[in-house]
Design a protein around this nucleic acid. Structure first.
Lengths: 339, 339
DNA sequence: TTGTAGGCGTTATCAT
DNA sequence: ATGATAACGCCTACAA
């Protein structure tokens, strides 16, 4: 591998002068500069970050730790957001996936530390509470899409499921719906409770009472191998004599099943029944006809802002609030009608 | 940051002895070993990879370059496969996303080179041909989910779209279907041609003729903002007097739209019409009722095997064939009936 | 404006 | 079995 010395020799200067050129330091004669730059180009010299790091102790790298990948399709957007921020700010990114194993997570922290990574973004693939590992390793960390469970008070950034669900519910109420079905997410998901609470509170504030809403559990069990009651629940809700005029689904995947159930019963969406989802899984929400009204999770921004917060943390800034929330955006498409 | 010298001092040995312990070299007395390990633990020493790299010239890192993220939901599995291989083989992984920008790609190669990354996995998010950049940088590279377009002969690994489509078509023929509709993928996708060719060849070999099949274009235009004709095409196919008994869809997203169209027309799946997809987007294929018969792309294995190939490339092995293919797996669920 | 000496944390080499 | 010394590529501090 060609080093700074090779360049120096070719350009007929000392290695320090080459170093000056590479780091754009002042006080280099124009002629010298040209000779050095020519030598760099002709040899294809690229600075060795490792050598640089050893002196400066600044690796300019972040690490990303993810727990699971691909249970939710669009959460790769979080990683994309982090990268875009990193690119724009001269940082490079290590990636590690734990597959949910604490053993692997421990190893990962050590590996990252051995690379002298300056900060870590701990990214979970669904919104949840994590019980942080006992810290053998102390690298500044920002939690993305999750929040710390116990005493530990890490900086974090999360989507505002509550606000998203409230907006969806208000949208329905605004269109005149007064009898509403609700299909709940797997209770193991943090979003399940937040979205459900927002729904209850919002319909109550609007003056609806218990018998105006019809709540069913859509899924439960281990994430990734859950029991799925959505299709059956949707059929039950929709075959009642006095069926609701709208159904709120825990997410778009559930909404898809409700569509299938409704269409199978010969119902028209949105004339016979309105449907809303959550998450904006575009593969689903765009493909459904009519397209699905839903709330988009701010995945990309979670990553981008998370990286930004990490940088500020490293600069010693005091982050207030420690736990930031990013709003979900209501996306009106065709699946909601007026009553 | 605690260094090998601190450990040596505390353990009362030379730094080289500590180095031996850390690297599990032989010829260390049991007592010494214990003392050193105790010192390492009590100081929380973690080796500095940068310093190690500077001497050994082996970074033990791979880089992943992705083009787009999140257009296809499950392609994050490729990255997961790479990581699992890396974890199992003591390598750490850098990640960079180009968002399709050549400028960014160029920078990325340089950044990777400055980190002395030993090999690169170039991952595309849909199966396609790439026109490789003029190589300023020479790092051993394996193409994953894509193949080199021009003269350049990189090692690559791809899914076998042709075989997957042939298996799906044979499955339909085996169930007695003789009038079959086909909805084509966006022609810009490499999979579009491969899947379509396999379909044509397979039905022809089975003795069907042109008027037995009904082929429509499902999408075209720029990836990510394509024109979508699927729903309309499906309705046309299904409202013909002599409609096909089965429809083959370019992918699961299209199959979803065909479901919606069929159900909206009051048709029963699979009694009135059978449907098959491609890709096994589980968010869709599992949520549909009946669940969708499809062909799963070997995303995870593409990543895992791609990393393995890269390692062998680095070891100087001669990879034959240079362009490997991984099979797609037929997944029978409920959307195909017998005629 | 340019160069020299020394050191960062680690490993290779050679000695003891 | 253990240690001394040099070297890796670069940068800091200082000198010329």
């Amino acid at each position: 591998m060609v080093s700074i010395k090779d360049v120096a020799r070719l350009a007929g200067v000392s290695d320090k002068t080459v170093s000056r050129v590479v780091n754009k330091e002042p006080n280099v004669h124009a002629d010298t500069l040209q000779r050095v730059e020519a030598a760099i180009a002709s040899l294809g010299y690229v600075p060795n970050m490792a050598a640089r790091l050893i002196r400066s102790n600044r690796s300019r790298t972040f690490g990303i730790i993810t727990d699971f990948i691909s249970t939710t399709p669009y959460s790769g957007d979080i990683v994309r957001g982090i990268q875009d921020w990193a690119n724009a700010n001269g940082r490079t990114v290590f990636l590690a996936n734990t597959n949910g194993s604490h053993e692997r997570e421990r190893e990962t922290w050590r590996t990252f530390q051995s690379h002298r990574i300056e900060g870590v973004l701990f990214v979970t693939m669904y919104h949840r509470v994590i019980d942080p590992e006992p810290d053998d390793v102390q690298i500044p960390t920002v939690l993305v899409n999750c929040r710390p469970g116990s005493k530990k008070s890490n900086v974090s950034i999360e989507p505002d499921d509550f606000q998203g669900s409230r907006d969806l519910t208000r949208h329905l109420l605004g269109r005149g719906h007064r009898r509403i079905g609700y299909i709940r997410l797997n209770p193991r998901l943090l979003g399940a409770e937040l979205r459900y609470e927002a729904f209850r509170e919002t319909v109550r504030d609007a003056g609806l009472c218990e018998r105006d809403i019809d709540v069913r559990l859509g899924m439960d069990g281990e994430i990734g191998e859950e029991n799925n009651y959505v299709f059956a629940a949707a059929r039950e809700i929709l075959t009642q004599p006095k069926r609701p005029t709208a159904i709120v689904c825990g997410n778009d995947e559930m909404a898809l099943q409700v569509y299938i159930a409704a269409l199978g019963l010969g119902l028209n969406i949105p004339n016979d029944v309105s449907i809303v989802g959550f998450d904006d899984f575009r593969t689903v929400s765009h493909a459904l006809k009519p397209e699905l009204t839903t709330a988009a999770l701010p995945y990309y921004d979670l990553g981008y802002c998370g990286a930004e917060r990490l940088e500020r943390l490293l600069e010693g800034e005091d982050l207030e609030p420690k736990h930031a929330m990013l709003p979900c955006r209501l996306i009106e498409r065709g699946s909601v009608g007026a009553v």
